[in-house]
Write a protein that binds this DNA or RNA. Structure first.
Lengths: 225, 225
DNA sequence: CGTTGTGAAGGTCTTCACAGCC
DNA sequence: GGCTGTGAAGACCTTCACAACG
């Protein structure tokens, strides 16, 4: 589970469900699409879901088949049922406590992200090194000193840590989160984190995304000119 | 290039360089790793680069082989040369103008992101619908009305649009960006954008990432218990 | 020597095509 | 009739293992 791999062959060692990584990364999209459907829609075919999710219908069917068989031939999938099955597969039947490390522009923007609650995520801590920031309230969350990180993680049963620090501080934060028993890290710092195999890191990196866009941009232009 | 596909088989139609998508998405990581090396380091082996980038050395070599043969057997890669080759492959030898749509928490945090400049990206516009925000200056960028979007894109030669609006507004913004000739979009709104094939969209989605983490979290716990 | 570059092997993921079922 | 579920085929990606080379 080392970082840099989005869903490589290095699969978690102990795995009950056998859902391929590529499928896992699409399930949240399906879930959102189902959620955005008008309440009057009770049923949805793989073709329809594929169109709104931007995926081929065969892909949708194969993905959903890993959850078991919840479709009705000739009809499609029951929206509520399917939604529930996806939530169950993703572990969204319970809530998760999240701590955000770094209360800069990004950290406080994340703290104010409204979408957390709807999927059962709750920000139970926002910490920063800067003494001047301590005590300030961003979007309803009080900034605490980073020295409290370990205490916050254990006492508030934090499951997920979000690293929103400058890159030079990110590795140290990741080490501390891992030591405090946090096994899931979402890294917004533009650096590769090195963590034990038992810790799962996902990276969200603006520069990387922009550079991938420019690659295609350049190739398109070369092709055109 | 429809969204939802990170690097599927739907390859851009006209493509000069034949670099696989998976490799393209790792090149920015290598580039950053090389950049972070101390200035005293002139040379770097695939083994070393692999360790800091979190990738197997064979993978590094195969990836770099697509750029041509720039390594020296028995020695490794010249850091400066390799860095230049990667930049060239990614199209980073020129600058790109970026417009950010949506000046909420996230939009203004992005406007203040220091990492833009170092790779040749320049934020030339930050727009919002809210009349109350117009004229305010966030991190040196003045907020302009979204009605100016088309004008900004054409007059300032915008290459990349960043969508940082609420999800209900995102599709409309994408349509307008596409109509204004912007062919690269980075979408932070939690929704799937539907754009013409000629437009390249990449999605950055906090909820999705968190849900993928909880999938692994749940499976780990099931395995342990 | 040590390290690159690469064919070949082995996985994983996507797409097709159609049997099976409502 | 229409749609799901799935084996099979094919595309893509990673890893291995070693010849080639400075």
């Amino acid at each position: 589970m080392a970082e840099g791999v989005r869903h490589g062959p290095n699969v978690p060692r102990v795995l009950k469900t056998n859902i391929p990584g590529a499928t896992v990364s699409r399930l949240p999209i399906y879930l959102r699409c189902l959620n955005d459907l008008p309440a009057s829609v009770n049923t949805c075919s793989s073709e329809q879901l594929g169109i709104i999710a931007g995926v081929k219908s065969a892909q949708v069917r194969k993905d959903l088949s890993y959850l078991g068989s919840y479709g009705v031939r000739g009809v499609g999938y029951n929206v509520a049922d399917l939604s529930g099955q996806i939530k169950k597969a993703l572990g969204l039947t319970r809530g998760y406590h999240v701590v955000i490390v770094g209360a800069g522009n990004l950290g406080s923007a994340l703290a104010g992200y409204g979408g957390f609650g709807s999927w059962g995520f709750e920000v139970v801590g926002l910490v920063d090194v800067d003494p001047a920031k301590i005590g300030a309230i961003h979007h309803g969350v009080t900034i605490e000193p980073i020295t409290n990180l370990e205490e916050i993680c254990s006492q508030r049963e934090v499951a997920i840590g979000i690293v929103a620090t400058p890159s030079h501080a990110a590795q140290d934060v990741a080490d501390r989160l891992a030591a405090a028993g946090v096994v899931s890290i979402l890294n917004f710092a533009p650096t590769v984190l090195h963590v034990p195999d038992s810790v799962d890191v996902r990276r969200v990196d603006l520069s990387t995304e922009l550079q991938i866009l420019t690659f295609h941009l350049q190739n398109r232009e070369e092709g055109a000119g």
